[in-house]
């Protein structure tokens, strides 16, 4: 059994998450050889006979696209690992700026830019948009999470290598959250830095934009359990992925409106920076953009150029 991990436009956090298996890694390499992973070993190209390849990161430039095609050709099973690969993830947020603006910012405007401010021409050209890997290649499985959490990988990776099947919950983050709702009165939206939420009640009910209800679980509601609203890093819950008329934005507005008895229009007025607060992890996904009710198209049009 040969496994590999390919890196596209991401932060390599997903590969580090695999290393977070710690001593369990010993069992993994007993059962399988890791033959290629640019982050953890010095092998430049994938061999042609990989059994399971994991691909992390989105597709943002031509090199990413070539690498994706190559790893697909080289592997029997290709698994999208992490939210960048599954839905574009944070790499997709680059679509909020034009390519020219991105290059200018990175090579000229940030503090660490070289003093000569030359924009290099020998880097792979950017594509016109970001893509999730499933938009461009056939994918056999999707494992979401930014990064996928260790407890989840500990279950799924050994099972994949052994060819076993697992029964896992397919519900939202709310289903794993230990908070309860309690009364909601005089609701108004709070920014994350405002106040300190109480530990018992639902964060959404307390006015924080917690995306737990529209987000796929598997993280054990890690953020709400640490008093931080969920920002959606596992990608959309499966009902949102499935239903054409449901989207992250409209279901959040509906739930807030039902919960607070405020008309949806009033709720919408209170929302801020929808691109980053609601679509931070899905903006680069064609599947999420193609929904009738998705706001992604407008957000990209508004900010680009």
């Amino acid at each position: 059994m040969k496994i590999a991990i390919e890196e596209l436009a991401g932060c390599s956090g997903c590969t580090i998450a695999v290393l977070d298996l710690h001593e369990m890694l010993l069992d993994v390499i007993e059962a399988a050889d890791i033959v290629y992973s640019p982050v953890i070993m010095d092998v430049k190209e994938p061999p042609g006979d990989i059994d399971i390849a994991f691909v992390t990161g989105a597709v943002r430039n031509e090199e990413n696209h070539e690498r994706l095609k190559k790893i697909r050709r080289c592997s029997k099973t290709l698994v999208a690992l992490g939210t960048c690969a599954c839905y574009g993830g944070i790499s997709g947020l680059s679509m909020l700026s034009s390519n020219e603006d991105l290059f200018r910012y990175i090579y000229q405007e940030v503090e660490t830019a070289k003093p000569d401010g030359v924009i290099p021409t020998d880097v792979p050209p950017f594509l016109y948009r970001a893509f999730a890997v499933g938009d461009l290649a056939k994918i056999d499985y999707y494992i979401t999470g930014c990064p996928p959490k260790e407890a989840f990988l500990r279950e799924i990776i050994p099972a994949m290598i052994a060819g076993d099947t697992l029964e896992l919950s397919r519900k939202s983050v709310c289903s794993e959250c230990d908070r309860f709702m309690g009364p909601v009165e005089n609701w108004s939206l709070k920014h994350r830095h405002e106040g300190v939420p109480d530990r018992e009640h639902c964060l959404l009910g307390q006015g924080y934009l917690c995306l737990g209800s529209v987000t796929f679980g598997r993280c054990g509601a890690a953020c709400p359990k640490n008093n931080i609203p969920c920002h959606g890093c596992n990608g959309p819950s499966l009902d949102i992925l499935r239903e054409p008329c449901r989207d992250i934005y409209n279901m959040m507005v509906r739930r807030i409106s039902d919960l607070t008895d405020k008309p949806a229009k009033e709720v919408e007025k209170e929302l801020y920076d929808v691109a980053h607060t609601m679509y931070a992890f899905t903006i680069g996904s064609l599947i999420m953009e193609d929904k009738e009710t998705s706001k992604i198209r407008d957000l990209v049009k508004e900010r680009g150029r």
């Binding site: 992925l241 239903e243 054409p244 599947i287």
Partner: peptide
């Protein structure tokens, strides 16, 4: 509406469904 997908109705299926994109079904 349930944020936690906590509900199950045994033996009921929605009668009329919106068309679901084949790409979405695949995924």
């Amino acid at each position: 509406i349930c944020p936690a997908q906590a509900l199950e109705h045994r033996g009921i299926y929605p009668a009329r469904r919106h068309y679901i994109d084949i790409k979405v079904c695949e995924m």
